[in-house]
Design a binder for these strands. Structure first.
Ligand SMILES: [Mn+2]
Ligand SMILES: [Mn+2]
Ligand SMILES: [Zn+2]
Ligand SMILES: [Zn+2]
Lengths: 141, 141
DNA sequence: GAAGGGGTTTGTATTAATTACAACTTTATT
DNA sequence: AATAAAGTTGTAATTAATACAAACCCCTTC
C-alpha cells in the first residue's frame, strides 16, 4: 500500500470511479494505514481536513470502493464493519484486550477444505481472535 | 449435534447455566439445525411454542451460551450476527444468491500462517463467500 | 458566458440489530 | 411460608447503516 496520489488516481479511473476530492482523501486514508478503521473513524479523522464532510459520503464512497473490489470489508466484529484497502490474501487477528486488528500472512493455496468442489468460491476471509504480544507483556501479573 | 434433551440438560448444568424451559428450547432449536439462524429467526420461530417469549430473553440466553463456549457467533455478514451450536472446527460458506450458510470441513492444523508465533490464538473463523451448487443449477440462462 | 445534465455530496429522517434497565415472575433455600 | 436469587419481560435507548431529496459541482453545448 502507501500508494502515491497519482497511482491512486489511476486506480479509481481504471474502475470508472470519478476521482473526486473526497473519494481520494478517503482512499488515501485507508491506503496509508493498517488499522482497519470503521466508517466512523474515517469520518472523524477526515473532518479536520474536510469540514463539510458527511458521514453518508463516507459510507457511499466505501460502498463504491467495495463494489469495485478496491476495498474489502472486515467483519471480524459483530457490531460494526471495518475496511481494508489491502485486498491481497491475508488473515486478520483481533486482540481481545486492546482491540487492535493485525494482518498476518496465510497460505491460502495450502488451505485444505472438503465438500466445496461444486461451489464457486469468490472470497476467502480468515479471522483469528486472541491476545497480542504487546498485551501479553503488559499483563504480567 | 441433535442432542437429546437430557444430554443438552447436562451440557448446561456442566457450565453452571440453570436449564430453564426457555434456555432449553433455544438451545434445542439451535442444536437441531444447521441454518445458523439470527436472534430474530429464533425468536419468531419459538414464539408459537412460547407465546410469552421476549426478544431480550433470546439475546440474553444466546449471550450466556456464547460466554460459556456452548455456542459460537458467526459474523459472516456485516449487518447481523448468526449463531451456531456446533463449536467444532469448521468453515462457513455464504451463498451470495440464496443467502444460505453452509458448513464445510477445514484442516485447521494444516492451515499455515506466519507472524503469529508470539500471539495467543483462542479462536479461528474461516468464512468463504460465493455461489452454492443449487443456485448454480437454477441459474442456467 | 448562460443553460442544462449527470454525477457527487450533504443533512435529515428512517430502519433495524442490540443493549440497558427496572418491574415482574419463577425457582431455590431456609 | 418467607426470603433471596436467578430468569424473564416490555419498553426505552443506543447506534450502525441506509433512504432520500435538496444542494452542489463539473463538464458540455448552445
Ligand atoms: Mn488487513
Ligand atoms: Mn456452522
Ligand atoms: Zn492487544
Ligand atoms: Zn445458493
Amino acid at each position: 500500500m502507501n500508494l502515491s496520489t497519482e497511482a491512486l488516481l489511476n486506480l479509481l479511473k481504471d474502475k470508472n470511479i470519478r476521482p473526486s476530492y473526497t473519494r481520494i482523501k478517503i482512499m488515501e486514508y485507508l491506503a496509508a494505514r493498517r488499522t482497519h478503521p470503521t466508517a466512523d473513524e474515517i469520518y472523524s479523522n477526515l473532518l479536520h481536513e474536510i469540514p463539510t464532510l458527511s458521514k453518508t459520503t463516507v459510507y457511499n464512497s466505501l460502498n463504491t470502493f467495495v463494489k469495485a473490489g478496491l476495498v474489502r470489508t472486515v467483519t471480524i466484529e459483530d457490531n460494526e464493519a471495518r475496511f481494508d484497502a489491502d485486498t491481497s490474501d491475508h488473515g486478520h487477528f483481533k486482540c481481545d484486550m486492546c482491540g487492535n486488528i493485525y494482518d498476518f500472512p496465510v497460505d491460502m493455496a495450502g488451505l485444505h477444505t472438503k465438500g466445496l468442489s461444486r461451489f464457486i468460491v469468490k472470497q476467502r476471509d480468515i479471522y483469528f481472535k486472541g491476545t497480542c504480544p504487546g498485551c501479553l507483556e503488559n499483563n504480567i501479573n
